[in-house]
Amino acid sequence: MVPTRDAVLTQLRKGVVEYCVLACLRSGPAYGLELAERLGATSTLLTSEGTLYPLLSRLRQQGWVTTTQVASPVGPPRRYYELTAEGRAALETFTATWARFTEDVRTTLEPR
């Protein structure tokens, strides 16, 4: 059976998207909607914006991000997510591993 594009994407997202979320927080804290925008509404990283939130909850429980409620100038208080030292270390390890992994995948997939 030939997998659909969606099925392939679902598999590829596993174990990757959480690090993309951490990478979006590298430059500083962000609230949910802001993070969803940074990840890109039309990108392939999220199935939909709502799927970001179970993932953020897991990252918080893991201790890789912390949350703080901050008053918003345009609406209800915002829940800001911030990278912890452990989260930053996890991201660095992933980034170093990912570079080698993607290079190997690219080399393997290239027509010879």
Partner: peptide
């Protein structure tokens, strides 16, 4: 946490 965060997301967008 997901319910609360989705609610906040919707409220912020609105």
């Amino acid at each position: 946490e997901t319910l609360a965060a989705v609610r906040e997301h919707a409220a912020e967008s609105l």
